[in-house]
Write a protein that binds this DNA or RNA. Structure first.
Lengths: 188, 188
DNA sequence: AGAGTTGTAGACCGATCTGTCTACTTTGTA
DNA sequence: TACAAAGTAGACAGATCGGTCTACAACTCT
C-alpha cells in the first residue's frame, strides 16, 4: 500500500533533489504527487517538516543501497574497490533505486541551509556520519587496529566526497575511477 | 572609489554565500548594500545577472588568494603542503579576504542550480577548472611529465573538494590536515 | 549654463509563496 | 450500519517575490 504520506515524501524528494529545496514550492509538490494540500498539512507541520522527511527517506535509501553493495564485496581491498565501483555506478545512472544523479542530496541541502546548528543541516551531518560508520565497520574486518583504520577511513571519506563534487560540479563522471585509483595507491 | 555596482556585488555575495541564493531576496540585498532598487536594475538585467556577477567576484577573490599562497611556497612538496595549509586557514577563518567559511560558494550554488547546462552552473564548473589549472601550473615545475602530473592533479583536486565538504557538511575543521596527510603519502 | 548619466526613495504591479479554511467524499473499522 | 479518520478540490489570506515606474537630486563633461 502506497500511503499518501509516502507519495508526498518520494515526490517531494525527487523534486527537491532535482531542482533544489527553495526552488520548489509546496504547490508544485502537491501537483507532482497528486495529493491535496490539506493532506500535506495533516501529515506535516510545514515545508521544513517535509524536508526533514525527505532527508530521512534518502538517508535510508542510500544507506541500504551502499550497505548491500559493500556486503557483497570480498574482505580487504575488495571493500575499497566495491565502494568506488558503487559510486561509479551512481554517477553514471546505473542504479535504479537512486534517482538520476544530481550530486549528493545532503551536500546540496547543506548549501541551502548553511547554519550548521539548524536541524536540517544537523541531519545532513548525521547522514554522513552514518555512512562513515558503515564504511568503518566494513574495514574493521581486515584492519583491526583502531588508529590506522581511522586514518584510512578519513582518507576514503575525503576521496568519496571529493569524487561526488567532481562528478556533480565539474561534470567529471570518471571521478569515481580516479578516486578508486588513488585509494588503491594508499592501501600500499 | 567604491562604486554602487561593487557595493551591490560584494553585499549580494556575502548574503548569498551565507544564506543561499534562493533564500535571499532582492530587497534584502538592497537594504544590506544601502543601494536603491533602480540602481540595481540599472547595472543588472535581473537577479540571475547579479548572481553571475557574484560568482565572477568570488572567482577572482579566491583565485588571487590561492595563487598568492601557492606562489610563496617552495617547489615540490612545498606546493602541496601550501595548498592544504591554505585550505586549513580558510576553514578555520584565518583569512580575512575570504568571508567566514560556509563551504565552497560554487558547490553551494551548483546545488541550487542543478541543471548542468545553465549558465550559472557552467560558471561554477569554470571556476573549478581555473583552480585546477592553477594547481597544475604549480606542479609543472617539478613534475614535467604530463601523464603523471595529471594523475597527481586529479588526486589533489579530489582531496581538496572532499576536504571542503567534510569541513562544511560534517563540521570537521581538521579536514584539511587529514587531506594533507593523505596527499603527502601519495607523493611517495 | 546645459545635457546626460548616475543616483535616491519608494509606490506599485502581477505572480508566487506558505499556510488556513470550508465543504464535501471516501474509507476502514467497531 | 454508523461514525470517525483520512481524503478531495480549491478558494482564500497575508506576506514576499522579482521587476517597473515616477519624480526628483547630484554629478560629470562638454
Amino acid at each position: 500500500m502506497e500511503s499518501k504520506r509516502s507519495l508526498l515524501v518520494t515526490g517531494a524528494f525527487e523534486l527537491f533533489y532535482q531542482k533544489g529545496v527553495h526552488a520548489v514550492g509546496i504547490n508544485e509538490v502537491l501537483q507532482y504527487s497528486g495529493v491535496a494540500k490539506k493532506t500535506l498539512y495533516h501529515h506535516f507541520s510545514g515545508k521544513d517538516d517535509l524536508v526533514v522527511a525527505t532527508l530521512e527517506y534518502r538517508d535510508q535509501c542510500f544507506y541500504d543501497w551502499l550497505a548491500n553493495r559493500l556486503n557483497q564485496a570480498e574482505d580487504g581491498e575488495g571493500k575499497v574497490t566495491a565502494l568506488f565501483d558503487a559510486l561509479d555506478d551512481w554517477f553514471n545512472d546505473r542504479v535504479e533505486e537512486l534517482q538520476p544523479f544530481t550530486g549528493c542530496f545532503f551536500i546540496n541541502v547543506s548549501g541551502e541551509y548553511a547554519d550548521p546548528d539548524c536541524e536540517i543541516h544537523r541531519q545532513c551531518r548525521q547522514h554522513k556520519q552514518r555512512i562513515a560508520l558503515l564504511i568503518a565497520e566494513q574495514l574493521s574486518m581486515f584492519i583491526p587496529d583502531n588508529d590506522s583504520r581511522q586514518v584510512l577511513l578519513d582518507a576514503l571519506c575525503i576521496l568519496k566526497e571529493g569524487a561526488i563534487t567532481l562528478a556533480h560540479v565539474q561534470g567529471d563522471f570518471s571521478a569515481a575511477k580516479k578516486a578508486k585509483a588513488t585509494a588503491l595507491m594508499l592501501l600500499k
